[in-house]
C-alpha cells in the first residue's frame, strides 16, 4: 500500500462516517458537523491521491494544483457551515426546534 492509497482510504472512511452521521442524527448541529467531516474526507482524498510521484527519484514532487483547489474547497465549506449555522440559529429562535422534524409538505 502506497502512502497515497493509505491517505485516500482514510479519506474515504471519513466520508462514509460523515454520511452515516448525516443520515442517522436528527440534531441539525450534528448534521452540520457530519458534513464537515465528510468534506474533510473528500479533501484528504484529493490531496492524498494527488501526491503522485511520477518520478521515483523525486519523492516530494507534490502537485500544487489540488492543494490550491482544496484551499478553495475549505473556504466553500466554511461558508456552508456559516450559512447553515445562521439558519439553524434563526430556526431555533423562531420555533425552539433544532431538528427538521417531519414537516414534509407543510
Amino acid at each position: 500500500m502506497t502512502q497515497a492509497v493509505f491517505w485516500a482510504l482514510i479519506g474515504m472512511a471519513l466520508v462514509v462516517l460523515g454520511l452515516y452521521a448525516l443520515i442517522v442524527h436528527a440534531h441539525l448541529l450534528r448534521k452540520v458537523l457530519a458534513l464537515n467531516i465528510m468534506s474533510s474526507g473528500v479533501f484528504l482524498v484529493f490531496i492524498g491521491l494527488a501526491r503522485r510521484t511520477p518520478d521515483a527519484d523525486a519523492p516530494m514532487a507534490a502537485d500544487p494544483v489540488p492543494q490550491a483547489m482544496v484551499l478553495t474547497g475549505i473556504v466553500v465549506a466554511v461558508a456552508a457551515t456559516g450559512l447553515a449555522l445562521a439558519l439553524i440559529v434563526r430556526l431555533r429562535a423562531l420555533t425552539g426546534r433544532t431538528t427538521l422534524g417531519d414537516d414534509m409538505g407543510d
Partner: peptide, 30 residues
Amino acid sequence: AAALTGAIRYLLVSVLGSLSYLLGVALLYH
C-alpha cells in the same frame, strides 16, 4: 419556520451533492 426548514434541508442536500461531485473530481484528477 417552513421557509427556514425547507432552506436548511435544501442546504444539507446541496452540500452533500456538491461533496459527492467533488469526490469524483478528486478521483478524476488522480
